[in-house]
């Protein structure tokens, strides 16, 4: 036993000691998957979001009521922040929502997604999960089939951590 232990100790020094002292030198991380760096940069301000919004509204002033945005008080996981948006009035075969856009103002690409509906939908109520690069305003715009435009905007605080962008 004695001879084994001393032998093993020496080997341990070689293997374990090198491992702790010189990580790169001995290629310790050879099989550990490497997380990629990201070049994603937040928008400096809401200018790009404003541009996207103006494109959607055609410059018209949207109504500040009729569209609801549900966000958590805190986005505890910035890689998946739940966002629900819905038109509050009932949808009928005569009056319905054609399209909703969702904008994350300061994300590298602020337009988060579009939703398109038809007279057959009978509803305009959607929810998705967003990855948010930092705390920012979230807004949504809706266009009804009679040309009315609706808008809603809300700030969200997200916890620190990777958003996966």
């Amino acid at each position: 036993m004695t001879s084994y232990v001393s032998d093993m100790r020496r080997r341990r020094l070689l293997a374990g000691g090198a491992a702790v002292a010189g990580l790169a030198a001995c290629g310790l991380w050879a099989t550990a998957a490497r997380a990629q760096a990201s070049l994603a940069m937040p928008q400096p301000d809401s200018a790009e979001a404003d541009r996207i919004a103006a494109e959607f509204t055609g410059g018209a002033e949207p109504l500040a009521e009729g569209l609801a945005l549900d966000l958590p008080a805190l986005g505890d996981n910035p890689a998946a922040v739940p966002v629900r948006v819905h038109v509050t009035e009932p949808m009928t075969e005569a009056s319905w929502c054609e399209e909703i856009i969702l904008i994350a103002d300061l994300n590298p690409k602020p337009l988060a997604c579009r939703f398109r509906f038809t007279a057959a939908t009978g509803s305009a109520d959607v929810a998705v999960r967003l990855r948010l690069i930092q705390s920012m305003p979230i807004r949504a715009y809706a266009r009804m089939n009679d040309g009315r435009l609706l808008a809603v905007r809300q700030e969200i605080t997200v916890a620190a951590g990777g958003c996966g962008l």
């Binding site: 690409k109 038809t118 998705v128 962008l165």
Partner: peptide, 23 residues
């Protein structure tokens, strides 16, 4: 009948979640 079309962009999370309603 088309009920809903969704066009995600980069801000949509990995393993995309979509919730919608229809009559």
């Amino acid at each position: 009948a088309l009920l809903m079309e969704w066009l995600p962009e980069t801000a949509i999370s990995q393993n995309p979640y979509i919730e919608f309603t229809f009559a």
